[in-house]
């Protein structure tokens, strides 16, 4: 790869991994590597986004993604404003489009959006003039999570091509799973999904994945074990019989992890349900990359903000 810091994305918005090419993904990851170095220094500030306004518009509660985007924007010199649904006019009946138009009139340069409905971020992007970054829309996509996961994997395992990655748990409702499947497949990994049938989406056999219904077979020989969060409201009775049974068959503990390669690494997008999808001993164990994922999150989001901002007018 040539000079990573000259990398730009040839698009205005980042709505999903779908449509991104392997060189685009690799370019973002290379750029993010530079920010990993920067973020470990005492002087973490850049001025790339000086004068730019970044609004984090979160219709759905989030701690880590929102703070990660906030820190990323601030380190690049942008003015960052956080807007959460709890204290906005959306609660007073304003529609998504009206909110978008209102914010648009304030001339933001970058809009980071999370929404509970699939497609909502793309809808909003069509109505505004600035760069829009999807920070998670319904069960559709969460592209920066997939990018940070890929960066974490690459730093620990080298090239992603040929790695066996097992994505385990609630694939049905997970935007993280969708974005990760698309990205890892694009970069040449062998992707598996492991879940009970009730937590797998219809048509999963047509996704570029190998489908497993048991952790024992799904984890066999895996390089990476990626656990997904199980939403609390789905725990009792509707999709799975109980937390106890789910943990018994699908919770990642040391015994199940032994099926994977001896040097397999464990990931989780957070926030974790300890004792539901993952055992504490594994989450905090030597094979866990969970804390590193958070660190990579800031670097990847800086890379995305930076690469998109270079395409802005007057940049």
């Amino acid at each position: 790869m040539t000079d990573a810091s000259a990398f730009t994305l040839d698009r205005r918005d980042l709505i999903g991994i779908e449509g991104l090419s392997a060189p685009e993904i690799t370019g973002l990851l290379d750029l993010a590597e530079e920010f990993v170095v920067l973020n470990r220094q005492i002087e973490k500030k850049r001025t790339t986004l000086r004068g730019r306004t970044q609004i984090n518009l979160f219709f759905e509660a989030s701690t880590r993604t929102q703070s990660s985007f906030e820190i990323a924007g601030k380190r690049l010199g942008a003015d960052v404003m956080n807007m959460s649904v709890g204290n906005s006019s959306v609660k007073k009946g304003e529609t998504l489009i009206d909110t978008a138009m209102t914010l648009n009139a304030m001339h933001p340069d970058l809009l980071v959006v999370r929404h509970q409905s699939s497609g909502a971020v793309a809808l909003l992007a069509r109505k505004v003039d600035c760069c829009v970054i999807n920070a998670g829309d319904g069960a559709h996509e969460h592209p920066t999570q997939a990018l940070l996961d890929a960066l974490t994997i690459r730093r620990n395992k080298g090239p992603i091509t040929g790695l066996v990655v097992a994505i385990c748990g609630d694939v049905l409702h997970s935007r993280v799973a969708r974005s990760n499947i698309l990205l890892l497949h694009t970069l040449g990994a062998q992707v598996r999904v492991v879940a009970p049938s009730t937590l797998l989406p219809a048509g999963i056999q047509h996704f570029p994945v190998e489908v497993h219904r048991s952790m024992e077979s799904g984890l066999e020989g895996a390089d990476i074990v990626m656990m997904l969060r199980l939403q609390r409201e789905r725990m009792a009775g509707s999709f799975i019989p109980s937390v106890k049974e789910y943990f018994h068959y699908y919770g990642l503990d040391e015994a199940k992890l032994k099926r994977a390669k001896p040097d397999a690494l464990v990931m989780h997008p957070g926030p974790m349900n300890r004792g539901v999808e993952i055992d504490s001993a594994v989450a905090d164990g030597a094979q866990s990359l969970i804390r590193e994922q958070v660190e990579m999150g800031v670097a990847v989001r800086m890379a995305v903000l930076d690469a998109l901002a270079r395409k802005l007018p007057n940049a």
Partner: peptide, 11 residues
Amino acid sequence: GLFASRLGLGG
């Protein structure tokens, strides 16, 4: 079906 699953929409 597959298309709904790709869009992340309930089927």
